[in-house]
Design a protein around this nucleic acid. Structure first.
Length: 155
DNA sequence: GCCAACGTTGGC
DNA sequence: GCCAACGTTGGC
């Protein structure tokens, strides 16, 4: 059991989009960063919990929780020249990029803003804090529970 | 819209 | 395998 943080731009795909999706599920696609991919490929497991973080928006913040419901599969967009996620260098025999399926769990009662995270000395490890453009990052168990409490989730 | 940070590419 | 140039991300 592990904990993660996934970034998304709410203009493209938000926690609300996920909550309203069929089965409240989506295939998390378009990961095009090796470090992020390696986390998903090598460490993410069905059952792991995921903070959904809104980036590139007015108030960047952790806004909700999802759960991984299906393990890593080839991301088909890498082979589609029409897709913004097309990767001409990916060999169909050895696909370079993967995605996995997550399901909505809940909105946070109080989103935890990037500003609050940066200002909080109790949060030290979270990769979000050290800048970084990583779109998928691990969250330690301790900081997961700390952030949950901070967001008003009581259990 | 700007720009800093940082990942990726490609020439050597 | 180094590193400069380039592209992208994402906060502000």
């Amino acid at each position: 059991m592990a904990y993660w943080l996934f970034k998304t731009e709410p203009d493209t795909f938000s926690i609300d989009t996920l909550a309203k999706a069929p089965q409240q599920s989506t295939f998390w696609e378009g990961i095009r960063n090796y470090q992020a991919r390696n986390f998903l490929r090598d460490q993410a497991q069905v059952g792991d919990l995921v903070f959904i973080y809104h980036s590139s928006c007015k108030v960047p913040a952790i806004v909700g929780i999802a759960q991984i419901t299906e393990g890593a599969k080839t991301d088909p967009h890498q082979f589609n020249p029409e897709s913004p996620y097309f990767d001409p260098k990916s060999d169909p025999e050895k696909p370079r990029w993967i995605g996995l399926t997550i399901q909505y769990r809940q909105h946070l009662p109080k989103p935890v803003t990037l500003q609050a995270i940066k200002a909080d000395d109790a949060i030290q490890e979270l990769a979000l804090k050290k800048a970084g453009r990583l779109s998928v990052m691990p969250v330690s168990e301790q900081e997961w529970h700390y952030l949950l409490a901070k967001s008003g989730v009581t259990r």
